[in-house]
């Protein structure tokens, strides 16, 4: 149960960090930095969603 909560919380935090990068930080930057931050934000949010999905896997299951 504790393991699952860690996945739920960390996944949400990673995804929200992605949102912050792409929606808050990227607009403040310009040129290449803007695009890099935007793409990193999207990827981080996607990674967060994948981490969230891992919360539902039993602990004894082999890694996906």
């Amino acid at each position: 149960m504790k393991r699952k909560i860690i996945f739920w919380i960390s996944g949400t935090i990673v995804a929200l960090a992605g949102v912050i990068l792409s929606r808050l930080l990227a607009p403040q930057l310009s040129g290449v930095f803007n695009k890099i931050t935007l793409v990193c934000g999207y990827l981080l949010a996607l990674a967060g969603i994948i981490v969230l999905a891992y919360a539902c896997r039993p602990a004894n299951l082999k890694p996906d």
Partner: peptide
């Protein structure tokens, strides 16, 4: 349900 709510909210924020 939890996964759907969180994912939808994150995607809507993005």
């Amino acid at each position: 349900i939890t996964f759907s709510v969180i994912t939808s909210t994150i995607l809507c924020l993005l």
